[in-house]
Design a protein around this nucleic acid. Structure first.
Length: 219
DNA sequence: CGGCCGATCAGCT
DNA sequence: GCTGATCGGCCGA
């Protein structure tokens, strides 16, 4: 098992996260979300779908109108903080806090293309053996709840610092970025309650990417 | 305290 | 496309 980052990939640092959520939502696509097991085995995927949550003015955001409860508190922390919440009685969703300290804005990680540790992801999602057979590789991390299940992310990780945490972080290739990937922009999923904010185009995904969330198919 | 509901998913029609 | 699962968080009384 390898505990360090593979040569050529660098962990994102504070300044990488200190930007507005619309910018970061696009910048995170193509970066790699990494989760290590207690033994140091790397489980990771390339981020292929994100959503921006714009804070106090955004009716779809948990921090709408400055709501500041124990659950949402990590959104008020430094850029690079993880905000993980539990929803629908059974799923977790992970966000990356950005902006400035005290400004509760974040980016939701909606889908990954599995990279390292796909076998472990498969066991966590579907168990071993027959139950896992025949399942689509593209469905492993194609949704925010699936990402958290495959990478063993839950509310115990809400509030951790992604720039220093030993077992949860985001990496980027150390080499110069190639030509920018083509992104498709659409409304956010599951926020129909948010009135005018429901229709805002605040979701991005990689064009032609099979590993995107269910609600994300189509143009 | 009680009640409502969700930044979802899987399975079925 | 539709619906049930399942429970912590949140708000109002």
């Amino acid at each position: 098992m390898r505990a360090g980052a593979p040569r050529g990939w660098r962990r994102l640092r504070r300044s990488d996260f200190a930007t507005d959520p619309v910018t970061l939502a696009q910048a995170l696509i193509g970066r790699r979300l990494v989760r290590l097991t207690p033994g140091g085995t790397r489980v990771s995927g390339v981020i292929v779908e994100t959503e921006a949550y714009l804070g106090v003015r955004d009716a779809a955001a948990h921090s709408y109108r400055g709501r500041r409860t124990k659950r949402v508190e990590p959104m008020y922390g430094p850029p690079g903080t993880a905000y993980v919440y539990f929803t629908y009685g059974m799923h977790h969703c992970m966000n990356v806090v950005c902006g400035e300290v005290g400004e509760p804005v974040a980016v939701l990680l909606r889908a990954l293309r599995p990279d390292e540790g796909a076998g472990l992801m498969r066991r966590r999602r579907w168990g071993g053996g027959a139950a896992s057979a025949g399942r689509s590789w593209a469905a492993l991390c194609s949704g925010p709840g699936r990402v958290c299940e495959a990478l063993a992310i839950d509310t115990r990780l809400s509030g951790v610092d992604l720039t220093t945490h030993p077992r949860l972080f985001i990496e980027r290739p150390g080499t110069i970025d190639k030509a920018p990937a083509r992104l498709i922009r659409s409304p956010r999923i599951g926020v129909g309650y948010a009135g005018a904010w429901a229709g805002r185009l605040l979701r991005w995904r990689l064009a032609g990417e099979p590993s995107v969330s269910r609600g994300a198919s189509g143009p």
